[in-house]
Simulated scan of single mutants.
Amino acid sequence: MQDGLKLDLSSLVRKQFIKPGANIGVRGIAWTHSYWGEVATGVIGADMSGQAEGWLCIQLGSLEQRIMLVSRPRHFGGRQWYFVCPATARRASVLWKPPGASRFCSRQTWGRQVAYASQFLDRDNRAHHARSKLNSRLCSIGGFDPEEWDVPPKPKWMRWRTYDRMVDKFDRYEAALDFGCYVAAKKLGILAD
């Protein structure tokens, strides 16, 4: 799923590609991947000037798709905007276009045709992946080199409670990996009962 393209309504508003209560002109949009760089480019336009309805139009290569938008009142005031999935007509905050798909739709539309890469990882690989993600997050916050640290020191402005929670998570992933090594060694007959 993450190798496809994603339209996240909250992210589009935060990055000012679209604006609730306004009709914006056409703007360029690009999707990038941390390893491959720029994956796709296109143009996007939206009209959210209506009280309860609007639209978003996206052009991406040969794809030209118009997606309806609806808003619902929030409990404490204001309105929350949603995409209307072109396939299921359900409200969604995120639409996906997996590789090879011809349009953006909600995750439920794609069903079992798509999955996140982490769904195919076993327990040990999930622990490796989560541990390295946690390490790189702490290192990027604190300005440390991830190759030099298993668990970097607490960044200056981070609360101790937050840092301790992250270290506890790291320790749990480490314990899962140690248990995986123990099980593998037992199966290979390296360890005696």
Rank of each mutant, 00 (worst) to 15 (best):
G45M: 12
S71R: 04
A22M: 07
I58V: 07
G25S: 11
G61W: 05
L56K: 03
L63P: 00
D47H: 05
L56T: 06
I58A: 01
I29E: 03
G28A: 10
G28K: 12
N23Y: 05
C57A: 09
H33D: 15
R72A: 12
G21L: 02
S62A: 08
R74E: 11
I58D: 03
G37V: 10
G28W: 05
Q59K: 12
G28L: 05
S49P: 03
G50R: 04
A30E: 14
S34F: 11
A40Q: 15
V70C: 01
L63K: 02
M48W: 00
Q65C: 03
R27N: 12
S71H: 06
I67L: 09
V70H: 06
G25W: 06
R72C: 07
I29H: 02
W36N: 11
V43Q: 14
G28N: 11
G28H: 09
L56V: 08
A46R: 10
W55S: 13
M68R: 13
S71F: 02
S49V: 03
G61P: 00
V43M: 10
R66I: 12
D47I: 02
E38M: 14
R27E: 07
M68E: 14
E53N: 10
G54D: 07
A52N: 13
A46C: 04
L60A: 04
L63I: 14
V39I: 15
I24P: 00
Q65Y: 08
H33L: 04
R74M: 09
H75R: 15
E38Q: 15
E64F: 08
G45D: 10
Q65K: 05
M68L: 06
S71M: 01
G54E: 04
V70A: 07
L63M: 14
V39K: 14
P73W: 04
S62D: 08
E64R: 13
V39P: 01
T41R: 14
V70M: 06
G21D: 06
Q51H: 12
S49F: 03
A46N: 04
A46W: 09
S49T: 06
Y35A: 13
G21A: 03
A30Y: 04
I58W: 09
R72Y: 09
R27A: 11
I24N: 08
V26S: 13
G37E: 07
E38T: 15
A40F: 11
W31D: 08
E53G: 00
L69Y: 05
G21S: 03
T32W: 15
P20L: 00
V70S: 07
G45Y: 01
G42H: 04
G28F: 06
V70E: 09
W31A: 07
T32K: 15
D47T: 05
I67W: 07
T32E: 14
I29V: 14
A40S: 14
S34E: 13
C57L: 10
I67V: 04
H75E: 13
I58R: 07
I67E: 02
A40K: 14
T32V: 11
G61D: 13
P73L: 04
G21E: 06
